[in-house]
Design a protein around this nucleic acid. Structure first.
Lengths: 309, 309
DNA sequence: AGGTGAATTGCATTATGAGCAACTCGATCT
DNA sequence: AGATCGAGTTGCTCATAATGCAATTCACCT
């Protein structure tokens, strides 16, 4: 019985259970869905037990399937770690490293680093996926997820990469034409380009040097967007004032295309300070490729991060 | 890399590492040695690392192989347990149960039980190997080993099945012809059939009712053997007096073909009391088929064991 | 009601593993 | 010291199993 179980079947089962879909698992592993179906069927036959309820639309784990899934996931992880350690002895980290990051942050701060990272670890292949929706690394089968802001899931391990700082700024043209605001309160007189995401319109928070709590200040303007890059573009063209994290606009600030204003206040897009974190399933922490990536990333970002220096 | 690893390869690797031999692993798994060779080669290729030193006569684990072996063994065990639990939910214990026992004890007290045990658990297949040499359950890939006497290896878990009691006895014919010895000391006047194993000639120990320590008493006779059955046969034919554990001769005692003597003393073949134990690798304890077997065995043996009742 | 995406099944092709035999190489035996 | 035996590897053929594609069924969405 247990001799007729194959590793691929177990891997596929874990993927199916995590994604809740045969097709999803098939895509992730680059196999036709029919193979997935047959492997799972073979596994169930070997165990003599149904692991998944097929509901045609969605796939749900059986009670025994749920237990088995938890155990097999753990087993496969430790097997992979063991194999990696065995393979990696006296050699470099290797294998496929799947990274997921927010679009803007990934393009600016992850993607440019990958070349030198891979030059340093030539045996690591990387697969960079950028998406702004929250990604469950377990569900997607991803090694590392970089997220900005809130952390909720406690079954994951997070490592802080940097603090996020916001600045209010505008193009020199805009400031020349409309003047430089002297206080946060005076922003109501200006055209502010406001981010409007899934959580609604972003508030602008301020606190004076040394103050503990942030205060919301009213802002308004003629352009709102759920796409930060569009707002940035508009700001560069002198359309208005923007509030952005420094990692997003440090190049523009440095080049002088955007000028910080209200430097006597600390600005923020959130009521509380937010960090930039790498999160990953607990087991992946012991993976040398993940460790190498995090170490490399943290070293290049630096403390304080290079975009704030 | 880790995707190209197969479960059979891992299983074979564990068996090879445990037995220290490709051929041995091949025999245990019922595969040609060539397959074993190729699977191990494939595993090493997948890891990019040599796991075993081939020394033509013996096979030794590499340093990385040693670590990998320990980890993979653990992993496969937990996988098997998980699979068994999944398979066994709402059903009976199943699978192959490999038992090893001493020849005499196995024939008398294990083999006769297997029929009813397997009737009770029809989905368990058993494989009973009888051998008197000490067997390492890990090395031999056995689920349960029954041993009489000394326990040494601490990496194994043991469960006491029964205490071992010895009796001195002889055939009625012998006693009629030569008389009944009144004291242990008078045994020197008798023809004692003595077991001579790998640890030399077996001593005969006695202590009177309530005494703490056993005392050796001199015995001699015209037949010594390393085969208990031969001595038993000779005793049944009236050749002499024997010292045997009760589990070995309870049928003959009950039938009156052997008559106990010196009943006022406790006899023993060992300087200290010895038990009958089931031993097994730690992980197997959680296996339901092992648990079922031990429970069944212990229930039928009883307390005190049926051969002493 | 029709369309879509997901899972299963049938079938032809391909690839992978089993089994057998031949070969090499040490170690042990005589 | 030479012969023999056992152990591991390699080449080869054959059977089994996995793959990929197409067809089918079914629930759900529009």
């Amino acid at each position: 019985m247990s001799n007729s179980i194959s590793l691929v079947a177990l891997r596929l089962f874990v993927r199916v259970a995590a994604t809740g879909s045969f097709a999803g698992a098939a895509r992730q592993q680059g196999l036709p869905a029919s193979s997935v179906s047959r492997h799972i069927a073979a596994l169930e036959k070997a165990l003599g037990q149904r692991l998944l309820y097929r509901h045609t639309r969605a796939v749900r784990l059986t009670e025994v399937g749920e237990r088995y899934y938890q155990q097999v996931r753990e087993i496969l992880d430790t097997l992979d770690i063991a194999s990696e350690q065995a393979a990696g002895t006296a050699s470099q980290p290797q294998g496929l490293l799947r990274i997921n990051a927010p679009v803007a942050f990934g393009r600016r701060h992850i993607a440019p680093r990958l070349a030198s990272f891979q030059a340093r670890y030539p045996r690591i292949e990387t697969e960079l996926t950028l998406s702004d929706a929250f990604i469950d690394p377990v569900q997607e089968g991803v090694d590392v997820v970089v997220r900005v802001g809130a952390l909720n899931d406690s079954s994951l391990v997070a490592r802080r990469l940097a603090e996020q700082h916001f600045v209010v700024c505008a193009a020199p043209d805009y400031l020349a034409q409309w003047g430089i605001p002297a206080t946060p309160e005076s922003l109501v007189e200006h055209n502010c380009l406001i981010y409007k995401g899934t959580r609604g319109v972003q508030q602008w928070y301020f606190r004076s040097e040394g103050a503990r709590r942030y205060q919301v200040r009213e802002v308004r303007g003629n352009l709102r967007s759920n796409n930060a890059e569009s707002l940035l573009e508009a700001a560069l063209q002198g359309q208005g004032i923007v509030l952005f994290p420094t990692w997003l606009i440090h190049a523009e600030l440095k080049a002088g295309r955007l000028i910080p204003v209200l430097s006597d206040w600390e600005a923020s897009g959130e009521p509380a300070p937010q960090g930039i974190h790498a999160i990953f399933p607990e087991n992946r922490l012991r993976s040398s490729k993940v460790a190498a990536f995090l170490e490399d990333l943290q070293a290049t970002i630096g403390e304080p991060p290079y975009w704030d220096a």
